[in-house]
């Protein structure tokens, strides 16, 4: 996010909305380094503005603020040096959403296909991306779904596969400034069962050329 449209921003401000739980606003003062800037904010559901009560401090100076924001609403905030307001902005916090990573992936194998499911996040218009590869593949393959229930075909259940998942937002619903979630931890599957890893003995594919 930056200051008024078109002018060189006094401050470089970055907003991350961690899964509608915590919003982190960080700033790096171009011309005001070494100054303790104060952050005052108001959420659209709140009665009044309030000063930050959870600053992030870097090299002895305020560099960010962590605030609780539990729903899809507008955050208005300002940054000042005690005498002047240096930066002012209002934004939907959903515009900077970073969903949490999917957890507890579960697998249902049926012949050469597997359906991967996990619990959907409590808000809408997301894309659940599943990536998979076997020990013979160098690149991940990707499949997406609007719910966490994604089926991938053409797999060889004899092979050992790596799976991972993440969540992205739909640009038409959240804009282009959001962040994909971190990848889930990698899960290994072979013959429809969970494996600790895929290193084990190299299994030759069914069809040897």
């Amino acid at each position: 996010a930056s200051g008024d449209a078109g002018q060189e921003p006094v401050l470089q401000v970055r907003i991350i909305n961690f899964n509608f739980e915590t919003v982190q606003v960080t700033w790096s003062p171009r011309r005001y380094s070494g100054t303790n800037l104060t952050f005052v904010y108001k959420l659209s559901s709140a009665e009044a503005s309030r000063p930050c009560c959870n600053y992030i401090v870097h090299e002895g100076h305020t560099a960010g603020c962590l605030l609780e924001a539990r729903k899809d609403e507008i955050l208005c905030f300002s940054l000042g040096n005690g005498t002047d307001i240096l930066f002012r902005k209002c934004e939907w916090i959903s515009a900077y959403l970073k969903p949490s990573s999917p957890e507890q992936l579960s697998f249902r194998w049926h012949e050469d296909a597997v359906t991967v499911t996990c619990s959907d996040l409590p808000y809408k218009r997301l894309l659940y991306e599943i990536q998979y590869k076997s020990i013979f593949d160098t690149e991940w393959q990707s499949k997406e779904g609007e719910t966490c229930n994604v089926t991938m075909q053409g797999l060889d259940s004899e092979k050992c596969y790596f799976f991972r998942a993440r969540v992205k937002t739909l640009e038409s619903s959240y804009g282009s400034d959001t962040y994909p979630s971190d990848w889930s931890k990698v899960t290994h599957q072979q013959r429809g069962e969970l494996r600790d890893s895929c290193q084990g003995k190299k299994l030759f594919p069914k069809f040897i050329l």
Binding site: D4, C90, S172, G175, S176
Partner: peptide, 25 residues
């Protein structure tokens, strides 16, 4: 999502809506 969103995006022609420092609720 099918037809209106692209037309709005095309109209904005690369100008980001977050560049305007006001908002609407």
């Amino acid at each position: 999502q099918e037809v209106i969103y692209q037309a709005l995006n095309k109209y904005m022609n690369g100008v980001k809506s977050t560049e305007f420092n006001n908002y609407i609720y």
